[in-house]
């Protein structure tokens, strides 16, 4: 099925304009300009300390920039309240620690309750919880105390909570083409401690949701995964955006070596849009 391009709404995006964040004269993010498009998967790459998480925090309003601005679909982020933002985007931070006992289901319901500024009816909350639990494969853990789960299970439970915050109400069953329109998902190293099976499953979901309108912005270290799922790759170095574009263009052995300090082999993959990227240990 083809859709006429001009019937789609104007491209929505989050735009970083000359964005800087300074801590003790270290420019963690340095005069960064970039666009993050709705309905696309943008992957931010970079070495440790390159400013990836800081950039994410600036875009989620967790931190205030010292210079520049973030335009949230053409509105300055500083004029939006946390309550307004929470209706449009959900964030999975790099680290989460649960210190009080809470069941997986309760945790996820806390996420779902955020929708409609807290005015979701209980049935919908349950329905949302049910759906995201299946997506993240934690249904069998629903009544377990999150503190007793393994690292990967906790990650999936937290991801389910995050998804519940922006999960379209009943839209999955309707014929709405873009149920995720206007929603954004920020993921900081979501693959950490997840097994490969779940990484693959969730990657497929992310790709599907992006096509349904969800803007996904993630920080990753896995180059091969990036090559497979990213629509747009941005590489940071010392707080500066040094490369950006489609994975095929950006993720060349030369670029990767230069910016990430890594020797790789890029292997074209039959049937896949983008090549496979494998670490090359013979040159190190």
């Amino acid at each position: 099925m083809a859709f006429p391009v001009n019937s789609l709404p104007a491209t929505q995006s989050i735009t970083c304009q000359n964005l800087s964040y300074v801590v003790q004269s270290n420019r963690l993010v340095d005069q960064l300009n970039s666009d993050f498009l709705a309905g696309k998967i943008s992957v931010i790459l970079g070495k440790n300390g390159a400013g990836k998480s800081t950039l994410l925090s600036l875009m989620t309003k967790e931190l205030e920039p010292h210079e520049g601005d973030v335009l949230w679909q053409e509105t300055s982020l500083s004029t939006l309240t946390f309550a307004e933002l929470a209706q449009q985007r959900a964030v999975l931070p790099q680290l989460q620690n649960i210190v009080f006992s809470i069941s997986v289901q309760q945790l996820i319901e806390l996420g779902a309750e955020v929708q409609k500024e807290g005015k979701v009816d209980p049935q919908n909350i349950q329905q949302i919880a049910l759906e995201v639990m299946q997506i993240c494969d934690v249904t069998h853990l629903a009544q377990r105390d999150v503190m007793t789960l393994s690292g990967g299970e906790q990650k999936r439970a937290q991801l389910a909570r995050v998804l519940a915050q922006i999960w379209p109400l009943k839209a999955m069953n309707s014929h709405h083409l873009k149920p995720f329109e206007g929603k954004w998902l920020f993921l900081d190293e979501w693959t950490t401690s997840l097994d490969l099976h779940h990484q693959q499953q969730l990657s497929a979901f992310f790709t599907q949701w992006a096509q349904q309108g969800l803007g996904i912005i993630m920080v990753l270290h896995d180059l091969n995964l990036t090559s497979q799922i990213a629509d747009n790759v941005k590489i940071l170095q010392d707080g500066k955006l040094v490369l950006e574009g489609e994975p095929k263009e950006v993720l060349t052995p030369h670029n990767i070596n230069l910016t990430l300090g890594l020797n790789v082999v890029v292997l074209p993959l039959d049937g896949a849009k983008n090549p496979m990227i494998v670490t090359d240990f013979s040159h190190s």
Binding site: S57, T60, K61, E62, T81, F82, A83, E84, L85, A86, Q87, A90, V91, P93, Q96, N97, I98, V99, F100, I102, L107, L110, G111, E113, V114, E117, G118, V162, Q165
Partner: peptide
């Protein structure tokens, strides 16, 4: 109570969930 629930998950998470 609701912000407290969110706060319990983490200060940054309470921000993400829409609480000041």
């Amino acid at each position: 109570a609701k912000p407290l629930n969110a706060f319990m998950l983490g200060e940054n998470i309470s921000l993400h969930m829409g609480y000041d």
